[in-house]
Amino acid sequence: MVKRILHSTYFKVSLFVISFAMVFISCDNKNDDVGDEELVEEFEDVEESEEAEDKTYKLPQIDLSHWKVTLPIGNPTEVKPPEILSYATNETLKPFFYNDSINGALVFYAYPHSTTANTSYSRTELRELMKPDEGENANWTFGEGGYMKGTLAMDEISKDSKGKYHRSIIMQIHGRLTNAQRDLIGQKDNNAPPMLKIYWVDGKVRVKTKILKDLNASDVDVLKTDSWGDDVGYTFSEYVGFEKFTLEVKVANGKMEVILNGKHSRVYDDIHIQKWHVFENYFKAGNYLSSIDSGAFAKVKYYDLVVKH
């Protein structure tokens, strides 16, 4: 009799435990189902967000309507407005002058090949055209002044046989003779020296300018390229490496100033600048690779570029 009671009690307790466990499992499964649904919804949201990001792109802040570009191919090849405005679909330009739409930059790619007159180096470089309808005949003097600002970065550049990076000119102020000056000195073209060259050299920004070899040179002799030499140069202390940086070039009130990242400045206001006022000038920006080594190349990225007069 006692055994029968114990068996009956044991059976009832076991049945209660099993029932409670089933209820608990059922509730837990329901919670899992809810969690799974939430995870699925979150995953779908992430997918939609990634797809939205994939559809977005950035463009460089550069108005090309007053620039022409020279390429390291052809004789060399030049593309002017309005054709340059369609650079993204221009098959000639695409290999050398194209958008990095992820970072919002315009890429300038160059390697040793075709060159312009008076140099042995190749370039993918913009040349300012103040009045595109007049071609290269409209320029500015130091008395009139000018301002250029760009945000840029060295993206990639090759190394020489000693393991040192090649260098590239990333900004310039180039001189130009008027037709009357050209004829006066009997020169076949309008070329004059570049008053300013700004280089990327081993991760730093280096500035080179022109100095008059003979300060007593005549008004005629001062127009000749061989009357001008190079200064010793100046290298900013800040290391920019392959990161984005900003350059400003200001010409006003009889002086020229180069500013790096809004805080480092180099001013030129000596007799050589005063003597330079005889020339017309134009701005240049891009990638002027200073190497003829086999396999040399460079890619410079410009995020924005503005010129004012």
Rank of each mutant, 00 (worst) to 15 (best):
P132Q: 00
S265R: 07
G163E: 04
V251P: 06
T77K: 14
E51K: 13
H7T: 09
G135E: 06
A138S: 13
K3T: 12
I73G: 04
K149I: 14
Y282I: 07
E280Q: 15
I84G: 01
D63Q: 06
A285S: 14
V306H: 03
N29L: 15
E91G: 08
G74D: 04
Y268H: 05
I173Q: 10
M148I: 13
K213A: 02
A217F: 04
K12F: 03
A138E: 11
I170Y: 12
D202A: 04
D28M: 12
P193T: 11
A252L: 10
V249N: 10
E248I: 09
G241L: 13
L59M: 08
H272L: 05
V69N: 09
H166Y: 00
T92I: 14
L71C: 05
I157P: 00
V69M: 11
Y10N: 11
E248Y: 06
D226Q: 12
A21N: 08
T56M: 14
V205E: 08
G145N: 12
K68N: 10
K299C: 00
T89C: 10
A105C: 02
K213S: 05
V34T: 13
H174F: 03
E128M: 07
E42R: 07
V23I: 15
K250G: 06
V249D: 08
L85A: 05
H272W: 09
A88R: 14
T9D: 12
P82F: 05
E47I: 12
V267C: 06
T225P: 08
A298W: 05
E128G: 05
D28G: 15
I102C: 08
V69S: 11
M130K: 15
L247R: 01
Y268M: 04
I5Y: 10
L6F: 10
K188V: 10
L196N: 09
I84D: 10
L212N: 06
